[in-house]
């Protein structure tokens, strides 16, 4: 922050590098307009929509992939293909087929789903074999084994996937909003600030993204921490 302030003072041109104070002022001015909240709300909806679908499907299909080798072999080439697709190509291609507003959500899913799926499969595979042997000896049924052994074992992997998905989801959603001209959105506000050379606004919107991202990460960690405490485990640091 100090370096930024010093650099802004040295450059002495808000067009090139606005100061932290000017950036903060910009955020306060933006917050006076109802459209500001509509843009944030729409972007949040896309991020959470994409992340939610990715995590939900990643959990279910990841569990299936971890438990069933044949299903893993079927899914793995699809996931590997999705992983290797360049994000920009995907955004432009999908924009040809579907409405601009939905593109960021679909792209977020395509980026976040492989992360979740891979993590969950890994979680299933690292489940404590000794607990599984114990369950087998006592003839515990498969539903209970999945509910009481696999799902709790996968939980730390799913949490890590969720945190990654949220982090990735923000970046991908905002990028996709810019490239797909999705309205209303944070991404398009960034884009307009850039084409109208409103560097201070560009910084203000970037600050908004960082604040939202940190707030969501903290809230998610807090919720997960409470959940772990209820289960008698150490909260996440």
């Amino acid at each position: 922050m100090l370096l930024w302030a010093l650099a802004a003072w040295w450059v002495d041109s808000p067009l090139v590098l606005p100061s932290p104070l000017k950036t903060l002022e910009g955020v306060i001015i933006l917050a006076g307009d109802f459209e500001f909240f509509v843009s944030i709300g729409a972007t949040l909806l896309r991020v959470f929509g994409g992340v939610f679908i990715s995590v939900a499907l990643g959990l279910v299909l990841g569990l299936a992939g971890g438990l069933n080798k044949a299903f893993y072999e079927i899914m793995n080439p699809f996931v590997s293909t999705i992983k290797s697709l360049p994000v920009v190509s995907v955004i432009i291609l999908i924009n040809l087929w579907i409405a601009s507003g939905v593109v960021p959500l679909v792209v977020t899913f395509l980026i976040c789903f492989p992360v979740t799926w891979t993590n969950v499969v890994q979680g299933v595979r690292t489940t404590d074999k000794k607990l599984l042997e114990m369950a087998k000896i006592y003839n515990v049924d498969q539903t209970k084994i999945i509910r009481d052994i696999y799902i709790p074992s996968v939980k730390p992997f799913a949490v890590s996937a969720l945190m990654n998905a949220i982090g990735l989801g923000w970046k991908v959603t905002v990028t996709a909003e810019v490239l797909a001209n999705a309205l209303p959105s944070i991404g398009m506000n960034l884009y307009y600030a850039k084409i109208y050379l409103e560097t201070d606004l560009l910084f203000s919107w970037t600050l908004v993204i960082v604040i939202c991202s940190l707030a969501i990460e903290k809230i998610t960690l807090h919720v997960i921490g409470n959940n772990r405490k209820e289960e008698g485990q150490c909260p996440l640091s």
Binding site: K130, L131, E133, M134, I137, Y138, D148, I149, P152, E231, G232, Q233
Partner: peptide, 15 residues
């Protein structure tokens, strides 16, 4: 069959 293993093999997330 019941089995008492060398280690307790309890579910850590259950009481």
């Amino acid at each position: 069959i019941s089995y008492i293993f060398q280690e307790p093999r309890l579910l850590p997330w259950r009481t």
